[in-house]
């Protein structure tokens, strides 16, 4: 498959949050400020790319040759959970500045379904090569970041708006996300 097509499709057309509904929890949780949304995106990108690379290799060189594909769910979640721990330890040692920025988001990522979802999709029916899988993971992370940053920007503006009492807080956030998803549907014709 064309690399360019994978990137455009993952970022805009099939946006991971707004079209596939993966990673909605952090999307709602950390999107109240633009700054925290950047931190979360950084941590997700980091883990998503590494996790997809590792799980892709495990799937194709261990699970498939031995015919134990049914173990996929258990193996993948274990790989992701240990990777998150590993990334945390390495970052603490190698780059304390980066750890300061991403640290608090890392433990949250284990239960971020976007990471497991992309890892499963990358070995799915699309039949990617290793390079394509890595690009796919990176593009999905960018798509996650784009949706999160846009939404955080909207929510920052919304704090100043006069919202009806019953809609304030969570309900208006969902409606805004719905309108954002509607806007992203405009990209559907591209691919």
């Amino acid at each position: 498959m064309d690399i360019f097509l994978i990137v455009i499709s993952a970022i805009f057309v099939n946006n991971i949050v707004l079209a596939k509904f993966l990673g909605v929890c952090p999307f709602m949780g950390v999107s109240t400020k633009l700054e925290t949304s950047f931190g979360m995106t950084g941590a997700v990108t980091f883990v998503m790319v590494i996790a997809t690379t590792v799980t892709f290799l495990i799937q194709n060189y261990i699970l498939v040759p031995f015919g134990i594909e049914f173990m996929q769910t258990i193996i993948f979640i274990l790989v992701i959970a240990s990777l998150v721990q590993l990334v945390e330890i390495v970052l603490k040692k190698v780059s304390p500045a980066l750890y300061q920025a991403l640290g608090i988001f890392l433990p949250l990522i284990t239960t971020n379904c976007a990471v497991l979802g992309v890892a499963i999709l990358a070995v799915g029916p699309a039949d990617f090569s290793l390079i394509e899988a890595v690009v796919y993971a990176a593009a999905n992370a960018v798509g996650f970041g784009l949706a999160l940053a846009t939404f955080a920007g909207l929510r920052e503006h919304m704090e100043l708006a006069n919202i009806p009492k019953g809609m304030a807080g969570i309900p208006i956030a969902f409606v805004t996300a719905g309108l954002l998803a509607l806007a992203f549907m405009g990209f559907a014709g591209i691919a």
């Binding site: 309900p171 996300a177 719905g178 509607l182």
Partner: peptide, 16 residues
């Protein structure tokens, strides 16, 4: 996709 967000938003608003 957008209907999921809109639907849940309005249901929570009604419950509130």
């Amino acid at each position: 996709a957008p209907g999921g967000f809109l639907g849940l938003g309005f249901i929570i608003a009604i419950l509130n």
